[in-house]
């Protein structure tokens, strides 16, 4: 090793300390490539503006961006937007929480106990094959028209990708590492906590990236069918009274929630999987 290499290793070692959180992550966030997507979004916005101002489409089909912006300010000022946002967020996050508990437990058990693979998987796929949109009205009748039914719908739509990713993650745990843990007299809880969970983390986080966006869809679907509040309700009402600005606003806010939740998972991933980037 040359002295330069040693120097480099030293710096690298310092960076890879357990709490390598600060600078590296800020650098990741400030990556110039992250500005590509906003630029494209701006392009789409310009196109929208251009089309709306051309007068080719009536206002009830394509609203002007300013109308949507005005509606946003209005609803922000009277607090109704925040109320809708809070309701939808609560529904999707509660759904996600319930789904993740069920999916992680089921996924782990199925991955570890072979026979359950044969017993449970057919029914679980059967359950997943039912289009949630189709049975959503029935769920609302069963559970009631309030927030609970939307939580159930959001959970139903998110649990499957989470469970599948958990199964894949736990199955991929290296048998050599399992044997190493056994040689070091680890009990089952220690094996789970120190080997299985961190080993399956890349797959589980991948599942969460899908699940967070799905949970927002689930909540909105529930609100479309029957609700008095929430962003889905905002869209439904906007559609029924021919107010496309509300529809657009609702859709944009829903997308923003999905994007934010996705970014939160991505940042958690950046921190939890920092060992994957080390040495490369």
């Amino acid at each position: 090793m040359t002295s330069l290499e040693i120097q480099f290793k030293r710096i690298n070692t310092k960076l890879s300390s357990t709490w390598r959180f600060g600078w590296q992550i800020i650098w990741r966030i400030l990556d110039w490539r992250l500005f590509i997507a906003p630029m494209i979004t701006y392009g789409i916005y310009r196109y929208w503006l251009h089309t709306a101002e051309s007068g080719r489409y009536p206002k009830f089909i394509l609203p002007h961006p300013d109308t949507v912006w005005l509606r946003f300010q209005e609803m922000y000022a009277d607090g109704s937007l925040l109320l809708h946002l809070k309701v939808t967020l609560r529904e999707s996050l509660s759904g996600l929480l319930i789904a993740s508990v069920i999916a992680l437990v089921l996924g782990y058990v199925i991955a570890r106990i072979r026979i359950l693979n044969y017993i449970l998987i057919p029914y679980l796929i059967f359950l997943q094959a039912i289009p949630v949109v189709a049975i959503a009205p029935i769920i609302i009748i069963w559970v009631g028209p309030d927030i609970k039914s939307k939580i159930v719908i959001a959970a139903l739509i998110t649990w499957f990708p989470l469970m599948v990713s958990t199964i894949v993650g736990i199955r991929n745990v290296s048998p050599q590492l399992r044997e190493m843990m056994r040689a070091n007299v680890a009990n089952p809880l220690q094996v789970f906590w120190h080997l299985e969970l961190p080993s399956a983390m890349p797959e589980i986080l991948g599942g969460f990236k899908i699940a967070v966006t799905l949970s927002v869809i689930g909540a909105a679907v529930g609100e479309f069918i029957s609700s008095r509040e929430g962003l889905g309700y905002l869209i439904v009402v906007g559609r029924s009274i021919s107010d496309p600005a509300s529809v657009f606003l609702g859709v944009i806010i829903l997308t923003a929630i999905s994007l934010t939740l996705y970014i939160i998972v991505a940042v958690i991933e950046l921190f939890l999987l920092r060992w994957k980037r080390a040495g490369s």
């Binding site: 290793k9 690298n12 070692t13 310092k14 890879s16 357990t18 080390a278």
Partner: peptide
């Protein structure tokens, strides 16, 4: 001791 905080992939 210099590598106490390094990850195995860096070794």
């Amino acid at each position: 001791s210099e590598f106490a905080n390094a990850f195995p992939t860096e070794l």
